[in-house]
């Protein structure tokens, strides 16, 4: 028996938005520690890793580990039937071929349930290596979304260069060039509005704007986002999900032939 009840159901709706542009289907791996999802996008240059800890749920029960293959388009349709205020419960029997989503209104006067067929996904389990990054940059998530959107107009790819002084985002294309420089915040009233840079060595890498824009679909999950970069390894874009977990996106830098 698996059962996970989330008082703040809107978080699951937001998680869905953060996943569905990159992934058509994915396995939700449930254990007594919580729910994990890890999948490469179709083109195999980005990876999405979601972690929702058991303690973050109002009620969580997982008698035995299970991996639920879900079509994310179908799951998204179902979650659209939940109101933002609803409490959402995900339920499945052991070895079941369906999963049930239950939506309760806050005053319990409306309860809906939707059963969805599970899929058999033949998925590879990838490990994520512990990595020391040369630069980590924390900035407001809305600022990052704005930068990705603005620079996408100039070209298909964007250079992110990080030095002690700050971080520069640049894109070049037919119409010209765009550069956005963010300095490290001197002092801030609210931590989530800060730009904070930790740097071992300067790094400059090029990334496809299309993927960065897809990652920013997670913006509503967190006020700030963290970018981690090192030469020759994938970029990590991390959004924390309140007290419950995180979604991390990995993206290979563009490599010149």
């Amino acid at each position: 028996m698996f059962e996970a009840r989330l008082l703040q159901g809107s978080l699951l709706k937001k998680v869905m938005e953060a996943l569905k542009e990159l992934l058509n289907e994915a396995a939700w791996d449930c254990s007594d520690a919580g729910i994990q999802l890890q999948a490469m996008d179709n083109s195999h240059v980005s990876l999405v890793s979601l972690n929702l800890r058991a303690e973050g749920f109002d009620k969580y029960r997982c008698d035995r580990n299970l991996s639920m293959g879900m079509n994310l388009g179908s799951m998204s349709k179902i979650l659209k039937c939940a109101s933002n205020e609803d409490i959402i419960t995900i339920k499945a029997q052991d070895n079941a071929d369906t999963v049930t989503f239950v939506f309760e209104s806050p005053d319990q006067d409306k309860v809906s349930d939707y059963e969805m067929k599970l899929m058999n996904l033949d998925q590879e389990h990838l490990g994520i290596p512990e990595t020391d990054y040369a630069c980590t940059i924390r900035l407001p998530s809305s600022e990052f979304a704005r930068i990705c959107r603005d620079l996408s107009q100039f070209g298909e790819s964007m250079v992110i260069s990080c030095t002690k002084e700050g971080v520069r985002f640049s894109a070049t294309g037919d119409i010209g060039t765009g550069n956005i420089k963010l300095a490290q915040s001197a002092k801030v009233d609210k931590e989530e509005e800060a730009v904070v840079i930790e740097m071992q060595e300067p790094v400059s890498l090029t990334f496809a704007c299309r993927y960065l824009n897809s990652f920013t679909k997670a913006t509503s999950l967190s006020k700030s986002v963290q970018l981690s970069m090192s030469p020759e390894v994938p970029l990590v874009v991390e959004y924390k999900i309140e007290d419950i977990g995180h979604v991390r996106y990995y993206l290979a830098p563009k490599i010149e032939d």
Binding site: M40, V45, L47, G127, P129, V233, P234, Y250, A252, P253
Partner: peptide, 14 residues
């Protein structure tokens, strides 16, 4: 592509 190879190499390191 070389990007795909980098992803495979990175995630196999774990």
């Amino acid at each position: 592509s070389r990007e795909q190879m980098m992803m495979d190499r990175f995630f196999q390191m774990a």
